[in-house]
Amino acid sequence: MAPSSTPGKLDGSGPVVAGKLLARKRPHLIPIYDIRIKQLFERPKTDHSFWAALPAALRADNGAFYDQLARLRNKAGIGEDIGVLRVFDVIAWMHQGRQGQVPTS
């Protein structure tokens, strides 16, 4: 990895990089969580509940949000090998990108 601009993190493995690596390794289990997602959902600066809040939202109302993401995946013609978390990630990133508020981190 390239050196990080964050002091004390010479290998670049801050929380965002670590989260993105985990999301890449386990796409059906770990959502992407970075500054774009944090701002889109107006999460607190120190956020320890996102990892529990998203699965709870996916299960709420008998899985209505999960089912909606699955329908969007099917409508887009994407195979079931792409998990609903990736669908969530793409929709959130696209929405935030249109807002033009935040550069990627």
Rank of each mutant, 00 (worst) to 15 (best):
G12I: 12
I32G: 10
F50P: 02
L10I: 09
S13P: 00
K75F: 04
P31I: 12
R86I: 08
S105M: 02
K20S: 11
G77W: 07
R73L: 04
R59A: 11
T6F: 00
M94L: 14
V102H: 02
P3L: 12
S105H: 03
Y33L: 15
P7R: 11
A70N: 14
V16H: 06
P3A: 13
V102G: 00
D81L: 13
M94H: 15
F50T: 05
V17H: 10
V90C: 13
S13L: 14
Q39W: 01
R36A: 04
S49M: 00
A64M: 07
G12V: 03
G79P: 02
R86M: 14
P3K: 14
P3I: 03
S13Y: 09
L58Q: 07
P103V: 08
Q68K: 14
S13V: 04
S4L: 06
M1V: 10
V84R: 13
D47I: 07
A53L: 10
A92Y: 04
Q39P: 00
K20H: 15
T104E: 11
L69D: 00
R43D: 04
G19H: 01
D47N: 07
Q101V: 00
R71V: 04
R71A: 11
D61P: 00
F65C: 04
P55I: 07
W93V: 14
P103S: 08
I91N: 03
G97P: 05
Q39S: 08
P103A: 15
I91C: 11
L72K: 13
L21V: 15
P31K: 05
K25N: 01
F50G: 10
Y33E: 06
L72A: 09
H28N: 15
W93L: 15
R71D: 10
R24P: 06
G8Y: 13
A64N: 03
L72M: 11
A52E: 11
F88P: 01
Q68M: 13
S4E: 00
A57Y: 12
F65N: 05
I32C: 15
L40P: 00
Y66H: 14
D89R: 12
R73S: 09
T6N: 08
Q96K: 11
P31R: 09
D61R: 12
S13D: 09
V17T: 15
I82L: 14
P55E: 12
H28C: 08
G12M: 06
D61L: 10
G14R: 01
V102C: 07
L58M: 15
G83V: 03
S49N: 10
K25I: 09
F50E: 07
S49G: 09
G77L: 11
L22A: 15
F41G: 12
L54I: 03
G97L: 06
H48W: 11
A92D: 05
M1W: 03
Q68Y: 03
F65M: 07
Y33A: 02
A23Y: 06
F41C: 12
A23F: 01
I32M: 07
K20D: 07
V90Y: 06
I78P: 06
R59I: 00
E42F: 01
V87E: 01
D61V: 00
P44T: 07
A56E: 14
Q101F: 01
A76Y: 02
F41N: 05
T104R: 09
G12S: 13
L69R: 03
E42M: 13
